[in-house]
């Protein structure tokens, strides 16, 4: 490959080589470091003295800040009200601010106004080792390799590599093996909803009657007996449901889901099919359900189909009916996995 010669294509900066034609150099010359400009404090003793006083003053500000912090710490308890907590936090914080900032400003001002302001130049040394050093290093490694005779002992080498590769498994296998608990990922496919389970209000657990819903009202629903399960939060994370009553005339239902609602009351999983946020912003006029995390919008009046946003699938519907006492109950679990998509969700 023919690269440009750096020395030719990119002239070195501090040389002014005459190009021979008319005595005009090919490059400009470095004018060198600009002359040092003395400061007021270098020239006038009064300015110097003033700067020193300012530094002392800034240190004094810091001392006062620290004292203020300590006074606030002992004399101003956070108390029980928002106002008293805010006051305590403000006074402590201002004390800390002055205590720290005072030191910083003092030291910097000192350095800027009183310490020697003349810039100095220092040579850089090439990082690359000299050729002799490199050769010596290579020689040393070669000698070492010879001493160990690793080149000639193939089986030994293989054994060592195998041992070193295998040994970490003693740590990795238990780590990976244990942290996933039972690894029963099929749990993603079902929730605790069962036939006949009552729909109850989140978080009070009050059962819901169909007559409790007026058109346009929404219940955030958990299954009956959620608190008695082994891990209520794990179950709740899958089982939360949004119960909505629409005017039955507004409702479009698929043929196979005709029996899943009751008199305009529909129940949909509250877990977004995108990445699992609770979808809960119900707009009762448009029947849109909006996810506050990524704005996926679902049409509750039409099978919770996606109208907008990053979700693809409709929210799973919970088939519901009414028991003898008028309470809303589930007909079964969801007929598909709730929540975000995963590789084997349809298997």
């Amino acid at each position: 490959m023919n690269q440009q010669n750096p020395a030719k294509g990119h002239p070195s900066q501090d040389l002014a080589a005459p190009d021979g034609q008319a005595g005009v150099p090919t490059h400009f010359t470095d004018p060198g470091h600009p002359e040092h400009q003395p400061r007021q404090s270098d020239l006038h003793p009064a300015a110097n003295k003033r700067a020193e006083r300012q530094v002392v003053l800034l240190f004094a500000v810091s001392v006062l800040g620290t004292i203020g912090f300590l006074v606030a710490y002992f004399a101003v308890p956070p108390g029980e009200t928002v106002a008293s907590m805010r006051q305590s936090n403000l006074l402590l914080g201002l004390g800390l601010f002055l205590g720290m900032f005072g030191i910083g400003a003092a030291v910097v001002h000192w350095a800027k106004s009183l310490m020697n302001s003349e810039e100095k130049a220092e040579d850089r040394h090439t990082l690359r080792s000299s050729d002799e050093t490199r050769a010596a290093a290579v020689e040393m490694l070669r000698e070492g390799a010879q001493d160990s005779a690793i080149g000639r002992r193939g089986v030994l080498k293989g054994a060592m590599v195998s041992a070193l590769l295998l040994a970490p498994l003693t740590v990795v296998v238990p780590l990976v093996g244990n942290v996933g608990e039972d690894w029963d990922v099929s749990k993603f496919k079902s929730t605790m909803w069962r036939k006949g389970m009552k729909l109850t209000i989140d978080p009070s657990g009050r059962p819901i009657k169909a007559s409790d819903l007026t058109i346009g009202s929404v219940f955030h629903v958990i299954p009956e007996g959620l608190e008695d399960t082994e891990h209520p939060l794990d179950e709740k994370a899958k089982a939360v449901v949004l119960l909505i009553r629409l005017d039955p005339r507004d409702l479009t239902e698929a043929e196979d889901r005709k029996g899943w609602s009751y008199d305009g009351i529909v129940a949909y999983s509250k877990i977004c099919t995108h990445v699992g946020c609770p979808v809960a912003l119900y707009e009762q006029q448009t029947h849109h359900l909006l996810c506050p995390c990524h704005q996926s919008t679902f049409d509750v009046a039409d099978g919770a189909k996606v109208l907008f946003g990053p979700a693809k699938r409709p929210l799973p519907q919970l088939p519901i009916e009414v028991d003898d006492e008028g309470y809303l109950i589930a007909q079964s679990d969801f007929t598909e996995p709730v929540g975000p998509s995963f590789w084997e969700r349809l298997k």
Binding site: K209, L213, T214, S217, V218, Y282, E283, Q284
Partner: peptide, 9 residues
């Protein structure tokens, strides 16, 4: 747009 929170909800 607000849902109805009747006295049952």
């Amino acid at each position: 747009s607000m849902p109805v929170f009747n006295d049952n909800v």
